[in-house]
Design a protein around this nucleic acid. Structure first.
Lengths: 152, 152
DNA sequence: TATTGTTATACTCTATAACTATA
DNA sequence: TATAGTTATAGAGTATAACAATA
């Protein structure tokens, strides 16, 4: 019985506070993004795929992309179909292994992605102005830790 | 020319860091929740509606619920249809204004919601153990500020 | 007329299972 | 046989526009 009752209750209070704020954040983020992306005729899943693709220097295969975007490959096929049709990404057979496909952002896709991101940065700058430099660092560090522990 | 160049660049560095981490957080949260909820046969939108409903002490109308869950009413009709069918919520005519409907969680819905939340709390406790008490307060405060500034 | 909510429509996302082509 | 990826299918979410019922 080393943990005092009071300490345990304090932990639970924090758990509930963080649960509430993170669920709220998750849904607000998703809906806001959904609406902002509509202006660019993009869905949240398409945007996630584009971002994942940007993470690969030389493009990727379908299965690598699916994993990076947290989708199964059957789902990714449909998402990629629609992005290819709009010339936002390309999908080509790998000549060395003709089962595999090589996927990458087109120039048009890179420009579009940057445009969307720049729009989001406007809001972020408002937020950052409310924080001190040390609070900014702390924010990034704590979110990073959250990602590691909760989704890592 | 009061803002030194160096200071501006530091701000932009933070903007990019937070942009990256928040987009990552948003998508990871969404996909993780989607998968966790599948176990309960719930979708993320249904869960958001249930949470929004829980925020009203006495239930709400369809339009209040739609606004709280960040949906339009046509979309909310479908989401509520499926939750009513499973007896997770109830939807009844308001006798005082027969255009309006009164929606609220059933006992079964309350129990289910609590079960889902408790499952998520397990992960949160792991996260909180990694933080000091003051870091916990800071985390909640900064996320709250983010919600205010970015989505408020 | 204005408000509350639903219906019809079209498109996208999602998972599962079965399939094709290549290794 | 094993792997990479697609297709078929069924259900859910989403916005728009048109609609019905009530105020």
């Amino acid at each position: 019985m080393t943990a005092p009752l009071q300490e345990k209750n304090l932990l639970e209070t924090d758990v509930e506070a963080i649960e509430r704020v993170m669920l709220q954040l998750g849904w607000a983020t998703h809906r806001q993004l959904h609406q902002e992306l509509a202006e660019f005729n993009l869905t949240v899943s398409q945007f996630a795929a584009m971002r994942a693709l940007q993470g690969f220097d030389e493009g990727s295969t379908m299965s690598e992309l699916a994993e990076a975007a947290r989708q199964i490959s059957a789902t990714m096929t449909g998402i990629v179909d629609r992005l290819v049709e709009r010339e936002i990404i390309t999908r080509q057979r790998d000549p060395d292994d003709r089962r595999a496909l090589h996927v990458s952002l087109t120039e048009k896709g890179i420009v579009l992605l940057e445009k969307v991101k720049e729009k989001k940065r406007v809001r972020l700058r408002h937020f950052l102005k409310e924080l001190s430099p040390s609070e900014r660092k702390t924010f990034v560090r704590l979110i990073g830790k959250y990602l590691d522990v909760v989704y890592g």
